[in-house]
Design a protein around this nucleic acid. Structure first.
Lengths: 127, 127
DNA sequence: CAGGATCCCGACCGATACTG
DNA sequence: CAGTATCGGTCGGGATCCTG
């Protein structure tokens, strides 16, 4: 009954993280949770994101089948983004993580501060 | 009724991702889900991780208060790691994501393949 | 308005060598 | 056994300029 090796390849778990686990992806998905939204509107909604990262993230999500891209031929062009059913199926998990964050992030920050203040002590100084 | 800006700072959600969202963190947490485990054993369990990344990841998790580090003075030294209650409280969310992965990752891969094969077309082929 | 193309810096991370 | 320290390559990602 030896415990199996945990490999990146074997563990489908890390594959999701591969999808969601970066600074912007989750925020981008989150911006679409209420429905269709345009490119420029997302830029404004997601504070601090660059146009490059937004485009890149949306492309990745479109490739993964989580996001639908709808181009409306017009001048100026209109491009709408929305979650696919697959993308929406990911929302509950993300909301659960978000709940955890809301409930426990304070503890994490406390822990960090405690840890960091401990780190400062050289050996016996700090008088 | 304007939708609020989604900011990295304001959205505690991304803070969790900040914790979990990298190549190794989730695998390391996952390696502790059954209880206490030693450093060397983790190295063996988590395929492909370097000692540097394991150490770094464990330190980060310890700082975040998710992991407990127990040093047993001995020769050779024994260092045991385990999840704190806070760390364990994160497991359900992670398992849910994992479930999603198991159930939907095939769709993601299909979507990727379809997307990539479409990309190849120079302009008008594929009748 | 919705991007594509470039430049560039810093963070991530693997490999290697050394230590208590 | 359980790390620390350092070097170096890769890549994420921001800033800027350009286009249909």
């Amino acid at each position: 009954m030896r415990k199996p090796v945990i490999s990146v390849a074997a563990c489908s778990y890390s594959h999701v993280l591969e999808i969601v686990a970066n600074k912007w992806t989750s925020l981008v998905i989150y911006a679409m949770e209420d429905g269709t939204i345009r490119y420029g509107e997302m830029m404004r909604r997601i504070e601090g994101i660059s146009q490059k990262m937004l485009t890149q993230t949306l492309k990745k999500l479109e490739r993964d089948g989580l996001v639908h891209r709808n181009v409306i031929p017009a001048v100026p062009p209109i491009v709408e983004y929305s979650l696919t059913p697959l993308g929406e199926s990911l929302l509950p998990s993300m909301r659960m993580l978000k709940e955890w964050a809301k409930n426990h992030y304070a503890e994490v920050e406390e822990s960090r501060e405690a840890y960091d203040s401990r780190e400062q002590l050289p050996a016996s100084v700090e008088g």
